[in-house]
Amino acid sequence: MLLKVFKTGLIFLLAILIVFLQFSFIPSLPQSFQAINLPLILILLSLIFSGPHSSLLLALFFGFFLDSWHFYFFATYLLSFVGVVLSAQLILKNWLTDRSLFSFLALTAISSFSYNIIWNFLNFIFSLNGSNDSRFFLFSFGFLKQLFFSIFWSVLFCGLLFIFLSLVSHRLKPVFLKKR
């Protein structure tokens, strides 16, 4: 019981740290690093290791804080993260049912792609109030560049964390088959 409380507390502290980093630290880095999306990475890891409930709660946590601090339409981050969890869960249930490293990386790439599409689409829709000349993002070079780096960093971080966690945790032992 105590261990569970300790683990929950640790995850809560980690989540708070990630929110601070995502809000203040990462957007100020050089351009290619701005696409790093730590909340998304943690949500996907939580989906694999703990299941959809905890990843939905994390999505709610991250979404609420980022929406409160940012000036985008409230619920942009909430809807994006929750949308990603639902789509990832759908993919895991119906297509990528084998929990291998490569299917996890594929899931990460697809989730990162869908997150960027959902977030930018919501931002575009909510900013169509005539006060600033919003352009549709899909064919803009800036969006495609951001999308590429977002997928790159997400896959890289998730892959490294997945390998590290498989070494320290017993839950993924069957995933990595040892050659005899």
Binding site: P27, A35, N123, F137
Partner: peptide, 18 residues
Amino acid sequence: VLAQEVLSETNESRQNII
């Protein structure tokens, strides 16, 4: 200055600060 907003739909980053 607490943060800056990155606008990904264009190539114009670092346009807003909080």
